[in-house]
Structure formats: C-alpha cells, structure tokens
C-alpha cells in the first residue's frame, strides 16, 4: 500500500506544482514508484512543469467517468524510471470530479504506487475538497509572506476540521539575505505562527524559472539550490520509513563577509534553509 500525500497551500502561486513535480521525481529517483496527480481541473499545469504537455491524451475526468482506465490516462516519464503523471482536464468544468471519484482513484493508485503525490488547486472550494479526500498526509506549502501564511493558517484549520492529522509544512522561496536584514519573516516566525511540524525550507531560486521554461525539473540542475532543497525534503519523506529525518544545512545565499563572521561567532540560526 502506497502513501497518498496532498500538496496544498490555500493561496495560489506559492509553488505547489513545482513542489509536487520535484518531490515526485526525487521519490522516483530514490526507487519508489511514484505518480503525480494534477487535480487542478480547468487550469492544468503539472504537465508543463514536468515537461509532459505533448504527451497528454486522456485525463483524470475521463478516468472519473470510467471512460478510460488509469493505465490509459497516466503518462510515464521517459527520463525518470518509475515516475508517472496523471493530468487534469483542461477543458472541463471543475466540478466534473467528485470527492467519491477521488477516493476511488486514490485507492486504486495506492495499490499500484509507493507514493501518490496530489497537486491541489488553489482555494478552498470543491477542488481542494477533492484533493484532500483521499490523502493520508498533507504538505502545506507557504512562502514567508503575510498573505500566504494567512491562507496557510486557514487551510490548516480546515484540514484539522476534516480530521487530517498528519500535516507538515514547507516554507518556499525563503530569501536568507532578507531574513538576515529583518526584511522577511524567518522560518522560526512562520512555524511559530502556523504551529505544524516543519518538513523543509526551500530557498528562493531564479533557476526554478529557467527549469520551468524548459520543462525540466530543478532537481536535475546541480546549480539549483531549490532543487537541492527538494531532494532533501524527499529524503525526509522517505526517512520515515528508512532513517530518522535529519536537518541538512544549506549555505546562506549571498552571505557577505559580515554574515559569515557572525555565523562563525554566533553559530547557525534559523535563517538557514534546510
């Protein structure tokens, strides 16, 4: 039996799809059969982020309606062994899939994969309810900004009401240099407010845009600090089965001499992405 993990955030544009794609690929690279499921019906995007847009034939709505089988609809990634993607429909109404459809699809996928990563649409409506319906675990993605953290808090409240107990947080697009200057909330600030366990921190990285431009994944770019962070996070997800999660320190982006000196004298603090 596999694990179904839903990636959600409330607010749009914080990096759910990028997180879903990179975590799925990292898990597959680690030898786990993994499928990434796009549930953003009408606003399909996981296909372009994963570079699979030219191979979409059927989608999740066709599967929900029973028109095609899962095997017909999912797309096998050519570069990554054991990585699959189930696309959302681009043209259909967002209510074309029900909570029961999702539970059924989730159960079926769980039999066939080690990891089912569900990319949730923004918002807290039907699409959100669908995306969390079958989830065993939830990852809430936020950025260290007031609006994103507020929405994350709202979503955490809804998840708790829906009796989802395993909630973990990813803080995306952290700018360590801004945190140092007191111009951005730190990891500690955000976790203090949201009060759920921290799975990882992804530093802001322009290379994500370059990766997305080309439909390649950041984890394959050795120069991408975000890619590195996603790989670390995937290891932590796996760690629950294999080894205990351990924090991995990444170097502070653009750290000046002064910061390095401070770091030397006063030790690490929570501005470091991990």
């Amino acid at each position: 039996m596999g694990r179904i993990i839903t990636i959600t955030s409330g607010k749009g544009g914080v990096g759910k799809t990028t997180t879903s794609a990179n975590l799925s690929a990292s898990l597959a690279l680690a030898g786990k059969r993994t499928i990434a499921v796009d549930t953003d019906i009408g606003l399909r995007n996981l296909d372009v982020v994963m570079g699979l847009e030219n191979r979409v034939v059927y989608d999740i709505v066709n599967v929900a309606e029973g028109a095609v089988s899962l095997e017909q609809a999912w797309i096998k990634h050519k570069r990554v062994q054991g990585l699959y993607m189930l696309p959302a429909s681009q043209s259909r109404n967002k209510n074309a899939v029900s909570v029961n459809d999702m539970k059924r699809i989730g159960q079926e996928l769980k039999q066939k994969f080690d990891y089912v990563i569900i990319d949730c649409p923004a918002g807290i409506e039907q699409g959100f309810q669908n995306a969390i319906a079958a989830a065993d675990e939830i990852i809430v993605v936020t950025t260290p900004e007031v609006s994103a953290v507020r929405d994350a808090d709202r979503v955490i409240g809804l998840l708790e009401n829906a009796s989802k107990e395993k909630l973990q947080l990813i803080i995306n697009r952290l700018k360590p240099a801004m945190v140092k200057r007191g111009e951005m909330m730190s990891t500690g600030d955000v976790t203090e407010i949201l009060a759920i366990s921290l799975l990882g921190v992804v530093p802001d990285d322009e290379k994500i845009i370059v990766s997305t431009n080309c439909g390649e994944l950041a984890i394959f770019n050795p120069a991408s600090v975000a890619g590195k962070a996603f790989k670390t996070i995937a290891r932590r997800l796996l760690g629950e089965e294999v080894v205990a999660p351990r924090p991995v320190e990444a170097s502070v982006n653009g750290a000046g001499v002064m910061n390095k000196l401070k770091h030397f004298f006063f030790g690490a603090n929570d501005t470091h992405p991990a």
């Binding site: 007031v146 007191g182 111009e183």
Partner: peptide, 26 residues
C-alpha cells in the same frame, strides 16, 4: 544576536511588522 542588534539601524524591522500583523489578523 548582538551584531544584528548593533547593525540594525531602526528598532523594529518590517519582518517584525509582518509577524505582528499576521498574529492580529489570525
């Protein structure tokens, strides 16, 4: 820490403002 304290010109930072505003709205 101490050096942050010395080198920070203004008493309160915008990240602190963000945190306080968030706490109130939440």
């Amino acid at each position: 820490n101490l050096l942050d304290f010395i080198f920070r010109r203004n008493g309160s930072s915008s990240s602190e403002t963000a945190k306080n505003r968030l706490k109130l709205v939440l």
